[in-house]
Structure formats: C-alpha cells, structure tokens
Amino acid sequence: MKTIDCSVITEQVARLCIEANIHLGDDVCAALKYARDRETSVQGREMLRLLLDNAAVAREESLPLCQDTGFAVVFVELGNEVWITGGSLIEAINRGVRQGYTEGYLRCSICDPLTRKNTGDNTPAVVHIELVPGDTLKITVAPKGGGSENMSRIAMLNPSQGRQGIEDFVVASVREAGANPCPPVIVGVGIGGTFEEAALLAKKALLRPVGTANSDPELACMEHELFAAINRLGIGPQGLGGDTTCLAVHILKHPCHIASLPVAVNINCHAHRHKEIIL
C-alpha cells in the first residue's frame, strides 16, 4: 500500500495547470515544424511559422499560449494499492486547479450554464477517474479550450453505415468546424461503446502523443485515411487555405451494442495542452 497525501496532489495539479498552458509539448512543436516545412500554401506556411513563434514567446515570457486557458479536464488513473490521506481526491484536484489558475495568471473561464455567472477560480474541474492495478497515481491535466470543444460532434450511426459512415462523419465534422477550432487541429475520435463512452473515448484519444502510431493496425489505417481526407479539405492553418488542416487523427474504440454504432469527434486546437505526472 502506498500513501499519498492530498496536499501533494493539490501542489502537482496546480503546477500541471500552469505548465500545460505555457509550454507547448515537444510533440506538437515537432508536428508544427514538420507541417511548416511541407505546407505548399504561402499563407499557410506563414501561419504555421507564427504559431511556432507564439509557442516560443509563451515559453520565454511565461505567458499562456492562448487566452483561453481552458476547462481543467483531469484524467486520473488510481492504483488499487494507493491510499489517499488528508481529504478527498476530487477536492484536492479542485484546490490544485484553483491555485494553479489564480497564481499562474490563467483565465478563469467556468460559469453557471444558465446565469452565466463565472465561478471565479476555474473550478470545478471535470475529473475522470479510472481504477487500475498497482500502487501509482497518474494525473493528467488537459486544459480544453471552448472554441474547439464547441466543434465536438456525436452521432449514433446505423451499423449498416459501417467504416465509410464513420469516416464520412469525421470528415464532415472537421469541414463544418472550418476556421472556428483554430486549425491545424488534432482530431480525437471515439468509436463504439455507448453515447457517453464514445465521447469520453474521443477526448481520451487526444492524450496520445502526436506523431505516435495507434497500436491497433486497423485503427492506424483509418487514422492515415482520415488524416489524408481531412487535409484534402483545404481549410488549412487558421482556415486561410493550405494542406495542413489537421496535425493528427487519434482513434480509440470500444465494443458496442449489436444495434448501435456510436461515433464521437472531439477536436483540439493546435494549442494542444496536456501534462501528466505519476506519483
């Protein structure tokens, strides 16, 4: 049994919120550079260059990459041999979000859905907890911007629509989104499960490092096809035209009901932020 105190969790969540918002991951930087060197549109190339400049300025000046520092989405993998002391895990995470967003000069963007009154400290976080074997606690903080989140789509397809139906839906979702989610985007796709499971898979798919291959060969093949089809749309960086509408397509699947074929699309912008720690 391993003991982890809530104060440690709070401190780490606060740090991850700040780091995720200021430091663009090496995987995304590498993908932006790769795209910049291959983009055939002059305007598109210029936009990719400016996005890399933005990442450099953010890092140098300790400024958030984007003013939308996002909804604090937190994925937790809790080992069954971990004992959390000093309070509740959820409260510890929310304290960390509060601390990170206020001390890190991050924007507090969470409000009541009806009155639209801001909660003032970017809480509550959305927390997804998974129980796993072992004695470690893994916390991933993935701040999610509203502009790209608003372009999410879910469809309960007819099983007869099959793989083609899935691909058509994903491409149509990115086409409809156009310039809104700040392309180039990373496209998370969840296939199967139930209504809510498909949406969660789509979001979880975004966490895989950009540039790594899907371990499932069939999904890897679909990712390649979708990547090519989306980049043929011509939306390009910032919607100003070009070959780089997406940097990656990531898919996760789960078995579904014999009557169903759920498909969810969760789009993330180029400010593709997530940081993790294993305690």
Partner: peptide, 9 residues
C-alpha cells in the same frame, strides 16, 4: 481574423 491561439504573440 486575428491569429487564433497566438495569444502570447
């Protein structure tokens, strides 16, 4: 349009 996601710049 301004450059989306280039808030630091």
């Amino acid at each position: 349009a301004a450059i989306g996601g280039a808030g630091a710049l």
